[in-house]
């Protein structure tokens, strides 16, 4: 890349609150590839919780905020396929009845990327990290089906020294998170996530990686409740070589 790419980094509300290290790892990777990363402070959320709960007005208000803040950058990059799916796929749906604004929405939709695809497809980044462990990768549904993310994270992970990637069964089946679904229908959610935990244990992975913190919190939470010793990280934390600097999800600082 000859020109410096100006990246507007969309933190996502979950990463902002629960696990800032995911954003720090993403930014480290982006900067190491020569990108100029800005994190606009006038960002909160993508609006997906409102969108998925039928509150279109709130979803649109939040979407407008994101669109107006991020249109000035070459790319919007976010460490979540779920939020990115909202921006890339559902924002244009939201503004179908506003043709003037829609042009702006589609422009943003065309230049926004989920972090792992951006690192792999656009930056074609070199990975120098080392992670000595057997890991399995969890595909988030929005990544897999809304954005077609499947090979990119696996190819990136295969470049990490010491890392052995093992595929679990039923990678295309939901972990039961589903945003507000997991607290609206906790019994069904628990049934789904228990199946996922079983597949993780069956493949004998020591670490689970994924590109969405929502799925990770859900699966880690169930795994830990079942007393299973598996660790959970966002993929970028491993790629940036930062996994050792932070306790895994749901674990304490030693």
């Amino acid at each position: 890349m000859s020109e410096t790419l100006k990246i507007g980094f969309f933190v996502t509300c979950l990463v902002d609150a629960m696990r800032p290290s995911i954003a720090l790892a993403s930014i480290k990777l982006l900067e190491s590839a020569g990108c100029d990363v800005t994190v606009p402070s006038a960002q909160v959320c993508c609006g997906q919780p409102a969108f998925n709960n039928g509150d279109i007005d709130t979803a649109k208000n939040i979407a407008r905020q994101v669109i107006d803040v991020f249109e000035q950058y070459d790319f919007l990059v976010a460490p979540s396929a779920s939020c990115l799916g909202m921006i890339k796929v559902h924002y244009p749906e939201l503004f179908q009845d506003e043709p003037h604004y829609l042009e702006k929405v589609e422009k943003l939709s065309n230049k926004c990327y989920e972090i792992l695809t951006f690192l792999h497809d656009v930056l074609k980044i070199e990975i120098s990290a080392r992670f000595d462990s057997t890991v399995t990768y969890h595909d988030s549904c929005s990544g897999l089906r809304e954005l077609g993310i499947e090979s990119q994270p696996r190819q990136l992970l295969n470049k990490v020294k010491g890392l052995k990637l093992k595929e679990m069964k039923d990678t295309d089946i939901c972990c039961g998170f589903g945003g507000t679904f997991c607290v609206k229908y906790p019994d069904i959610s628990t049934s789904l996530v228990s199946d996922k935990v079983k597949n993780i244990i069956d493949v004998d992975a020591k670490v689970v990686l994924a590109g969405d913190l929502g799925c990770l919190m859900n699966i880690a939470g169930r795994c830990q409740r079942e007393g299973k010793a598996v660790r959970f990280y966002h993929t970028v934390e491993v790629l940036a070589g930062m996994a050792a600097e932070y306790p895994a999800i749901g674990e304490k600082w030693s």
């Binding site: 990463v15 609150a17 800032p20 996530v193 919190m217 939470g221 830990q224 409740r225 749901g250």
Partner: peptide
Amino acid sequence: SRDFPSPQGSTF
């Protein structure tokens, strides 16, 4: 049915 992780510290 699930544990809830503690946040890392302050917000990003």
